[in-house]
């Protein structure tokens, strides 16, 4: 049946190697080339270029993001380093300040102690001087009283009882005589 079909088709031609075929091949060749050039140049190429440009753009964005990330990391490291330096400096400053404060405190305490000692010594000396002065005064008063008593003994005759009373009165007039003990 297939052979019959082909034989019947001969006048119309399914396959024939003649001059007509050569001309038709020429026409179809031109058609093919025109179509392929148009499709390749005006369809494939622009779409491919769009895709390549997009790929390039995305690659660049990824690259930029990587660089930015690296920069951020470097900056972070830098700042962390600076913070560590600041922390260390703060520690050093605090240590120095504490030491200075301690030294100053000790110095002040020493000065205060010294001044207090001096003040105490001076006060002690004043007390001693005042005591001396009071002693001298008391001695002088005793002498005066003794002189007075002696004068009375000499002028008035006294009995034993009166003499004792007078002495007691003299002693009572003098007040506390602890300094004599």
């Amino acid at each position: 049946m297939y052979a019959t079909v082909l034989l019947e088709a001969l006048p119309g031609k399914i396959l024939g190697f003649d001059q007509e075929l050569v001309i038709e091949v020429g026409i179809q060749w031109i058609n093919t080339i025109i179509l392929i050039v148009i499709m390749s140049k005006f369809l494939y190429k622009p779409v491919k270029q769009f895709m390549s440009a997009r790929s390039e753009r995305i690659s660049k964005q990824i690259r930029d993001a990587g660089e930015a990330e690296q920069l951020a990391k470097d900056m972070k490291e830098d700042y962390e380093g600076k913070l560590r330096d600041i922390e260390r400096e703060r520690g050093e400053i605090l240590t120095v300040a504490r030491k200075r404060a301690t030294d100053k405190t000790e110095e002040l305490l020493f000065q205060a102690r010294e001044e207090a000692d001096q003040f105490r010594a001076r006060a002690q000396k004043d007390i001693e001087l005042a005591e001396e002065k009071v002693k001298d005064e008391m001695k002088r008063q005793i002498i005066e009283i003794s002189t007075l008593l002696a004068g009375r003994f000499a002028t008035i005759s006294l009995d034993r009882q009166t003499q004792d009373r007078l002495i007691d009165e003299a002693i009572a007039d003098m007040g506390g005589v602890k300094w004599l003990r």
Binding site: L15, E24, V25, Q28, T32, I33
Partner: peptide, 15 residues
Amino acid sequence: PPTADIATTIPLALN
């Protein structure tokens, strides 16, 4: 179908 003609397929093969 144009490809059912040898005149269409020969140019493609020649390319």
